[in-house]
Design a protein around this nucleic acid. Structure first.
Lengths: 341, 341
DNA sequence: CTGAAAGCGCTTACAG
DNA sequence: CTGAAAGCGCTTACAG
């Protein structure tokens, strides 16, 4: 690989001048610029990223942190990976994947390595130890998700509270008053629980109470087979229920299948609305589910934007963005029957 | 952040000695080592990755290349991201995501940036221009997948040929002689087509011909809704077919649902076997599909292993690994009826 | 076993 | 507008 010095030699200018023309960091005469550019082309020169990073104190590398050993992301979470990587590239950064167990020690290792200019956090818990660790470091960060206390913490997240209200509104409008929320579980209680589930449960409890609806929660399955089993249990435990909020992408299709095996007709006997999911996943079930679509791509993109703006000292105060889900109809939504089944 | 010089000052030794003790690159007396380690602990010192990379000529960063704008990976492809990242971390490397359009220019930009020690390629086409470009560069690489001509090219891939034979064997054993393969399309024909699909089609054609079976191919849908539509078309075009190889994770559940809407009973009227998919995806359909499970996690891991061994000059000749799919039964497999429907 | 010094490939005050 | 030189944080021959 040719170095900047090689270019300088060939163009008969100084190392500094080559740097100036490459970075447009100082005025360079057209003549000199031409010489330098010709030399670069001749040598196929590309600026070495490591040398540059050391001199600038900027690596242009961002880390995407997510819990290690968690290989079963929801299809929706997975989109953060690609949309964040795209946006990073677009803005001249690179995104490195940083799987780590949920301990603070590994965060320190990352932030003090000097490898990354900033950190994006995924799969945030309400009391996430990684966040306090990052707050204490000098490295800028942004969350996709949010902690319980978000004071001074830049984040982008789904507006779960509003999504729950939206979902319940739609069901109530169709006459449903007995509802069940199905989710994937809050996970580690020590960390306050997985944000999306914890917030959704809270909102679900509040909104159903406030409107005098019956609202129960079911959880604990993580596969389509589990969803089938859960449907049996649901039929036994909640015979009066006519409306289901499904916030479990792995179990959704199995649950819908299980309902039908248990004798329910959709949507005559029961309505199901997928929450914070994707069209893709919602259409995996038979019939296709109605769904409040999670703005996953947008979140990945915005998470990176918020982070880079912060690195460039462009945003003040720190942004906290809640993005709405959008509704897409499906064959699982219908009016409640007057007399149950 | 404390630097190595800070540590040296505090420990009253030279910069070099600190380096020697950190890297175990030269003998250091126990006494000196203790002083240095105490100083490091006092200062909370961590070696700066950029300085180290520049001096060593090694960044310990690997790139994972995949086509940009391709946000609809199959659930199985997605696992490469996390399993590769895990293995990289385990071996002391970092994995950066590198979405790029399928052109050679961007590869050059990557390999000449000095940022990465090696490259893993995903979503390989039979005549992939990225591969020829990488072959011409000095940067080590490994494919997850393989090109048409694999001479001298290190790769790990699913053994699609053997999987197809395995699948057909199982169907033939149950009496099926009229088969259809459903896939997601070969994609860009200019690049020879997407490896898994192209190889599977070829093997399917060969094996069916060789055994005197009827074999047709259907394609062109990329969603569960598309799968439903395709089932109608299938019923019309292939009324004699009793065995389906499903290599399309997006369309699979919809196709199975569509079959039943078209009046098929599974598995009495027709058998469906998912190919190179996952248990998760196969269980999304109702009933759950039998499946030849793709060794996705293993491939991500091995791809990184092959690459790092090569960087460490550990492997010679370059490995070319084909990994088998493993069978998992499901309710969609049954004996062929004597007289069709 | 330890240290002084050169060097990795850049950027950027500083001087002209 | 251009250049000589210091410096970013390390590693590693070389000398002792």
């Amino acid at each position: 690989m040719a170095t900047m010095q090689d270019v300088a030699n060939l163009a008969n200018v100084s190392l500094a001048t080559v740097s100036f023309t490459i970075n447009d960091s100082k005025p360079v005469s057209p003549k000199t610029r031409a010489k330098v550019e010709a030399a670069m082309k001749d040598l196929g020169y590309r600026r070495n990223a490591v040398g540059s990073a050391l001199a600038r104190g900027r690596t242009h590398v961002l880390a995407l942190l997510y819990p290690a050993l968690q290989h079963r992301f929801s299809p929706t979470s997975v989109r953060f990976f690609t949309s964040a990587a795209d946006q990073a590239r677009l803005r001249g950064y690179n995104l490195v994947l940083w799987p780590m167990s949920n301990d603070a020690e590994a965060v320190t290792e990352l932030t003090s390595s000097g490898l990354v200019d900033g950190v994006v956090l995924m799969e945030v818990q309400l009391d996430d130890p990684r966040v306090s660790e990052l707050s204490g470091s000098a490295v800028p960060f942004a969350l996709i998700g949010r902690t319980r206390d978000t004071t001074g913490i830049p984040f982008v997240d789904v507006d779960f509270e509003s999504a729950v209200e939206n979902a319940i509104d739609r069901l109530v409008e169709l006459g449903h008053t007995d509802l069940v929320l199905i989710d994937g579980g809050v996970g580690n209680q020590l960390l306050g629980g997985y944000g999306p589930v914890a917030r959704t449960r809270k909102a679900f409890g509040e909104v159903t109470a406030q409107r005098g609806l019956s609202g129960a929660i079911m959880s604990g399955v993580h596969s389509s087979a589990g969803g089938r089993e859960l449907a049996k249990e649901f039929a036994a435990k909640h015979p009066e229920t006519t409306g289901v909020l499904m916030m479990n992408e792995h179990a959704g299709p199995g649950f819908v299948a299980g309902l039908q095996q248990a004798g329910y007709r959709l949507p005559q006997d029961i309505s199901v609305l997928a929450l914070a999911s994707s069209l893709d996943t919602a259409s995996m079930s038979e019939p296709e589910m109605a769904v409040l679509i999670s703005p996953a791509d947008e979140l990945g993109r915005l998470g990176v934007d918020v982070l880079i703006d912060q690195i460039d000292k462009k945003n003040n105060p720190l942004p906290q963005l809640l993005i709405e889900c959008s509704y897409s109809p499906g064959a699982t939504m219908g009016p409640a029957l007057k007399h149950g089944r």
